[in-house]
């Protein structure tokens, strides 16, 4: 699969549009879902997907094989998404490594029942910062190792681990809050 993807990139670099078709169909769903997990707007997400695939087409010759093709593509998607967020909110910085208050965090056993409610989890994931949502998506939807996630989002492995840790704490706090309000 990886070799096939590299071959597709080689052909795209030569201007082969049938390779573009195959590449787009192979990656479009994953890339869209990654972008969509961070942008709450399907039109914006479609637009960014288009920008990502355009960039892949134009940059295919520059792929050096230092990472897997999927890491490279998701990395482009990561940066394009941040660009879009910055354009949407000019002057507002994108929160790259937010910290959260960890006092009085609920324990895992208390929030387990709420975590089994799809609607409550969706609401709480939506409230996460952009940086936390991306790591949660890459770890739990894409099932990627932390090293690969670090390559995609462009930060040290330790930062990926702590972002995931803070994301989990924030989710637990949110789920516990919903449970307390009787919403789960």
């Amino acid at each position: 699969m990886s070799e096939d993807d590299r071959e597709l990139l080689n052909r795209m670099a030569q201007g082969d549009q049938s390779a573009l078709d195959a590449f787009y169909r192979a990656y479009e769903g994953r890339v869209y879902r990654f972008i969509r997990s961070r942008l709450n707007d399907s039109f914006d997400a479609s637009d960014v997907l288009n920008e990502v695939m355009f960039e892949v087409w134009r940059s295919a010759s520059r792929f050096e094989g230092r990472s897997s093709v999927s890491t490279w593509v998701l990395g482009i998607a990561h940066h394009k998404t941040i660009d879009r967020i910055r354009r949407r909110k000019p002057g507002e910085s994108v929160e790259l490594d937010p910290e959260i208050a960890e006092d009085e965090s609920p324990n895992a056993a208390e929030t387990l029942s709420a975590a089994q409610d799809a609607e409550q989890v969706r609401r709480c994931v939506d409230q996460l910062s952009e940086a936390h949502r991306s790591v949660v998506h890459l770890a739990f939807f894409e099932d990627l190792p932390y090293g690969e996630i670090a390559g995609i989002v462009g930060c040290p492995e330790g930062t990926v681990k702590t972002r995931m840790f803070h994301a989990k704490k924030a989710l637990m706090k949110c789920l516990a809050g919903l449970k307390e309000m009787g919403l789960s």
Binding site: G29, T111, L112, A115, V121, F140
Partner: peptide, 20 residues
């Protein structure tokens, strides 16, 4: 146990179709 439940919900989340 909590992380497994969260992972399952993330995987199961339905979103609209991609542009295809």
């Amino acid at each position: 146990a909590l992380l497994r439940a969260l992972r399952q919900q993330v995987k199961d989340e339905q979103i609209e179709n991609s542009p295809g």
